[in-house]
């Protein structure tokens, strides 16, 4: 028997007994970041594929949601910072070894491209807004200009969306100290999940039947890919080192099993996939809205599981000999 205990009390807040430095703020941020990536990706892709008729909302209206969703995400990210006054420090440096530094700059790049996307589709997507501003001479000229480069802007948006989507996963997977995160599969998983939630959200909002149908088909494909990545991730974990096996145990028969298998895999992937399959076959249109909602919920639950479980996995785990709650008496 190995008995390994802390004989001096250690109870650093959010680090002991298990790490919980990142809470809902980060899960929401990663979810919204992925969603924003999906939004930017599909708005650009549909434009490039000339899907004006089949998917008019995707081509002309969707891009507006990108900066909005991302801004919400960045707000929660900001809320998470514990030394908030120094947030500007992200932008006085570029740290080539830090994924978070890349992320900070990717977020910054997202905005100009996203705004250009909106402007280049404003007249078609939001004609009443365009009419309001069209009389201001430089605005009209500006809109003319960006419409001319509409396709170029879309081409720019595709890599930024992919980078953002992958980044939300790489951010976690770069932490070698957290065995659950430390796999290259988190990047693709979060990218696919981000795209899937983006497609689902679009399907939810779009009015035109053909557009819903198109996005549902795309989403079904993405879910299949996502299931494959999840399978690879599990294989990777269950064949890994001891700390990874411990992490796998939390999924396969531990504190996260229910959330992972029931909520994420079943409700978030398999059920919507089935619904989408029936929808594509034209036999289940009455419960149309349920599939994208489940996909969105599943996408968020995936981020929660990844953030929470990942922090709990560790190389070293000590128990205190003494009851740390007694320290409350100090205050």
């Amino acid at each position: 028997m190995l008995e390994e205990i802390l004989v001096s009390v250690r109870s650093n807040p959010h680090i002991d007994p298990v790490m919980s430095v990142w809470g809902w703020e980060i899960s929401v941020y990663l979810f919204l970041g992925g969603l924003a990536a999906g939004i930017m990706f599909f708005s650009a892709l549909m434009l490039l594929l000339n899907k004006d008729d089949e998917a008019p909302f995707s081509v002309n209206g969707l891009a507006l949601l990108g900066p909005v969703v991302l801004s919400l995400g960045m707000t929660t990210l900001f809320l998470d910072l514990s030394h908030k006054l120094f947030v500007w420090r992200f932008y006085t440096t570029f740290e080539p070894t830090s994924p978070m530094s890349y992320g900070a700059w990717i977020l910054i790049l997202f905005y100009p491209v996203g705004i250009l996307q909106i402007l280049s589709t404003l007249r078609k997507g939001y004609p009443y807004v365009a009419n309001l501003v069209n009389d201001i001479p430089p605005v009209a000229g500006l809109l003319d200009l960006v419409e001319r480069y509409q396709r170029l802007i879309a081409w720019l948006a595709i890599p930024i969306a992919v980078a953002l989507g992958i980044y939300t996963g790489i951010l976690l997977s770069a932490f070698s100290a957290r065995p659950f995160w430390n796999t290259g599969l988190l990047g693709p998983l979060f990218l696919v999940s981000g795209l899937s939630t983006g497609a689902a959200l679009t399907a939810l909002i779009a009015r035109q039947h053909s557009e819903r149908r198109l996005l549902t088909r795309i989403d079904a494909g993405l879910i299949v890919v996502e299931l494959l990545v999840v399978a690879l991730l599990l294989i990777n974990l269950t064949t890994g080192s001891k700390p990874q096996l411990d992490a796998a145990a939390m999924l396969m028969g531990g504190s996260y099993t229910g959330w992972f298998w029931v909520v994420f895999v079943a409700l978030g992937l398999l059920v919507p996939l089935a619904l989408e399959y029936f929808e594509i076959r034209g036999s289940a249109s009455s419960i149309l809205m349920l599939a994208p909602v489940l996909v969105l919920v599943g996408g968020y639950v995936l981020r929660v599981i990844a953030v929470d479980l990942g922090q709990e996995t560790t190389w070293i785990n000590y128990q205190n000999e003494f009851n740390t709650q007694l320290l409350d008496r100090l205050h």
Binding site: M19, H83, K84, F175, A177, W315, I316
Partner: peptide, 18 residues
Amino acid sequence: CTGCKACIAACPYDARLI
């Protein structure tokens, strides 16, 4: 320091604190 806590998550020894 922005308090982003990346370093805390990055430490395999849980040696950092807020």
